[in-house]
């Protein structure tokens, strides 16, 4: 029975390691939640059991969402939602078209591969290198601190990835269905609209959500292109840092507001998230 014993030794080690790692991964989030329901007087205490060790308080949430700073937070949430959803929509529109073109037709002067790789290489640019010319362009166009400026920036940021992933998704559809439709008298545009598009819907939704998450989390472009009206949630967190230091309760509540939406979306699309993050190199 030796092999079996060895397996169980491995299992014990595996579980200890897994539990430790889970604890380490979740602890900062857990602590954020706990801190956000402490009253300012208790924000530095090590108490972690609500009701038993400290009296939970909604003070932080009242400040962040209520009279005092609620307008600012709501504006941040509104900007975040608007920017992420609109920029992802634009990305999806251009991305699906370009992806379909590169997946289904053969280009001659430049090969499809070269075009696709060139598109993806735009994704590798360090954002800070693009941020300076962007700032100047938006200043010239008098678009600083407006939603269009940030949306345009986030579209460039996400478009290469979206095209690249859409090529993959359209490739996975069997061409024969569209060919059959063409023989039946569909135009190639109808074949795209009525057949390829609906069939690749899971991929399209995944790309949309992925772009939404990236846009939601993006910080550098927003912090360089906006100063008051168009701040998104991540920038509002950074703004909570004052000369007096950090108000733990407030930063915790703000961080949770910024962290929760992308985390939930990622959990819902976990299968595609890895594929997106690895640029399609890993497929599940």
């Amino acid at each position: 029975m030796r092999p079996k014993k060895r397996v169980s030794g491995f299992l014990i080690f595996a579980w200890i390691f897994l539990l430790l790692f889970t604890f380490w991964t979740l602890f900062p989030f857990f602590w954020g939640v706990i801190t956000s329901i402490k009253s300012p007087g208790e924000q530095y205490s090590t108490a972690f059991l609500p009701h038993f060790q400290f009296k939970p308080s909604s003070y932080a949430w009242q400040v962040v969402l209520g009279q005092a700073e609620g307008e600012r937070t709501r504006q941040g949430l509104r900007n975040s939602i608007l920017i992420s959803s609109l920029s992802s929509l634009l990305v999806l529109f251009m991305g699906a078209l370009a992806g379909y073109s590169l997946a289904r037709f053969r280009f001659h002067r430049w090969k499809n591969k070269d075009i696709a790789v060139w598109i993806l290489s735009n994704r590798m640019f360090p954002p800070i290198a693009v941020a300076i010319p962007f700032f100047l362009i938006m200043r010239t166009l008098r678009l600083l601190d407006t939603l269009p400026a940030i949306i345009m920036a986030h579209v460039v940021y996400n478009l290469p990835l979206a095209i690249w992933l859409m090529i993959d998704f359209f490739r996975e559809l069997p061409e024969e269905i569209e060919e059959a439709a063409l023989i039946d008298g569909c135009s190639s545009f109808q074949a795209f609209l009525r057949i390829a598009l609906p069939l690749s819907l899971p991929g399209i939704v995944a790309v949309y959500i992925l772009c939404f998450i990236f846009s939601w989390n993006e910080f550098l472009f927003v912090v360089t292109l906006s100063y008051r009206k168009t701040m998104t949630m991540p920038v509002i967190i950074a703004g909570a840092l004052t000369v007096r230091g950090l108000d733990f309760w407030k930063v915790s509540a703000l961080s949770l507001l910024a962290v929760t939406p992308p985390v939930i979306l990622a959990a819902l699309t976990s299968r595609y998230l890895i594929r997106g993050l690895t640029l399609g190199a890993v497929k599940e």
Partner: peptide, 13 residues
């Protein structure tokens, strides 16, 4: 969770 959350939120946490 950690990689889906905004990096700046993580930084402040």
């Amino acid at each position: 969770f950690p990689m889906a959350a905004p990096p700046i939120g993580i930084a402040f946490m």
